[in-house]
Simulated assay, not measured.
Amino acid sequence: MVLLNIGLANKIKGELPPLARWRCRPFRVTGGSPLFLKRRCDVLLSGDRNDYADDFTNTRLHELPVYIKYRFSETDFHMNYHFHRGYELFFLHEGWGAYINDDYVHPFQGNDLILIEGRQIHRASPTIGRRFTRTVINFLPECLIPETKQLVHDLFGKELENENRHLLLSEEKHARIYALLHQIHAEYTERHTGFQHMIGILLTRLLQDIHRIRFSDRPPPNKDTAEENPTIHDIIDYLSSHYAENILLVELAKRFYITPYYLCRLFKKATGDTIGRFITYARIRQAKQELVFTDMSISEICTRVGYGSFSYFGLVFKQYEGMTPRQYRQSYKRSINR
């Protein structure tokens, strides 16, 4: 029998809504890393359940069958217990704390994804004083293409245990999903002709990726997969370590003894993204770390992450983050000094 830190349980206990009674008990861990331990917590709600209805989200979903909050950051963030219509995908990009989902506490560990079914009472409980950045997608089934019915059932069905609704994304998977979130957000905000249909397509693709991560439905290895899997992992490892260099496609292909065409096809098939976008994402992610945690000048950071042009670096950074590198650094400092 394994027990989690009682301090966390007591902290969350003190934050429960007035109409709730709290009872915690340990549960048996049958395997896996200690990082995955969760404390089973039963929240027994009394009174009127409608006290927890999230009218704001319900209104947004009435206007449009999808509602998105993209890379929303706060330092002193507090969320009340609530529920709403439709399903929710909660992506944590940075921050610490826990997520309470009906009767489970999911400690955040970095690059987390929480799956919330409709009308399920939940809340995030981030560590106060730490930057908390997340993307939240609320959606109704009607915004998806018809073929996704089984996907939604597999990911959000009531028979799925709450402990299995918390996924930890590797850097590779987080990069791929982040690119999809960026595309969905662009469609949602720009709202060009046919944007709802395009959001449905992109959201379906996102759910397919999550389904693969969740269930790891890998077929028995054949000749092709046995050759491809080690190669693609080696390529990703190389790009993750050398993103600041001027990487030429021809030279990269030679390094792994494949043709440039096959390299691009293999990488796209495995990650859903191009090599160029993967490198850009790695550069911007490192630049954000340098902006927040170092005193280096922005021009130094620009060079350090692989950009020869300061103006182009600023343009790409703003395209990904919605603000310039200077604004990003200033916004972080303001949030810390509140």
Rank of each mutant, 00 (worst) to 15 (best):
2 V>H: 10
9 A>W: 13
10 N>L: 14
10 N>P: 08
12 I>V: 13
13 K>V: 05
14 G>C: 01
15 E>N: 08
20 A>S: 08
20 A>G: 07
21 R>D: 12
25 R>T: 13
27 F>S: 15
31 G>L: 09
32 G>P: 01
34 P>F: 00
34 P>E: 02
36 F>H: 12
39 R>G: 14
39 R>C: 13
41 C>V: 15
45 L>E: 08
45 L>G: 09
49 R>T: 10
53 A>L: 14
53 A>V: 05
61 L>K: 12
63 E>H: 06
65 P>A: 01
77 F>K: 06
78 H>M: 12
79 M>W: 05
81 Y>S: 15
82 H>Y: 07
85 R>Y: 09
85 R>E: 14
86 G>K: 01
88 E>W: 00
88 E>Y: 01
89 L>T: 03
90 F>C: 10
91 F>C: 02
92 L>P: 01
93 H>W: 05
96 W>H: 13
98 A>T: 03
98 A>Q: 07
99 Y>N: 10
99 Y>G: 02
100 I>M: 04
108 F>W: 09
108 F>T: 07
111 N>K: 07
114 I>C: 07
117 E>N: 10
122 H>D: 04
126 P>Y: 11
126 P>W: 08
127 T>G: 06
128 I>N: 14
129 G>I: 02
133 T>G: 00
141 P>C: 11
141 P>A: 11
149 K>G: 10
149 K>H: 08
149 K>Y: 03
149 K>A: 12
151 L>E: 03
151 L>P: 00
152 V>N: 01
156 F>D: 00
158 K>F: 03
161 E>T: 12
162 N>Y: 15
166 H>Q: 02
169 L>W: 01
171 E>C: 06
173 K>I: 12
173 K>Q: 15
174 H>G: 01
178 Y>R: 06
181 L>P: 03
181 L>H: 03
190 E>C: 07
192 H>N: 15
196 Q>I: 11
199 I>T: 05
199 I>K: 00
200 G>V: 05
201 I>Y: 05
204 T>E: 06
204 T>H: 07
205 R>N: 12
206 L>Q: 04
208 Q>R: 13
210 I>P: 04
211 H>D: 14
216 S>K: 14
218 R>W: 04
221 P>Q: 09
221 P>S: 11
221 P>I: 10
223 K>W: 01
224 D>Y: 15
224 D>S: 12
226 A>S: 12
226 A>V: 12
227 E>T: 06
230 P>W: 07
233 H>T: 10
233 H>Q: 14
235 I>D: 02
242 H>Q: 10
242 H>K: 13
245 E>H: 08
245 E>K: 11
246 N>H: 13
253 A>M: 04
255 R>D: 04
255 R>Q: 07
264 C>P: 00
265 R>K: 15
273 D>I: 00
273 D>F: 13
277 R>Q: 09
278 F>Y: 15
279 I>R: 04
288 K>M: 02
288 K>E: 01
291 L>H: 04
292 V>K: 05
294 T>E: 10
295 D>Y: 11
295 D>P: 06
296 M>F: 09
297 S>Q: 08
297 S>Y: 10
299 S>A: 09
300 E>C: 06
303 T>P: 02
305 V>C: 05
308 G>Y: 05
314 G>W: 00
318 K>Y: 01
318 K>Q: 00
319 Q>D: 11
320 Y>A: 05
322 G>A: 04
322 G>M: 02
329 R>F: 00
335 S>K: 09
337 N>L: 11
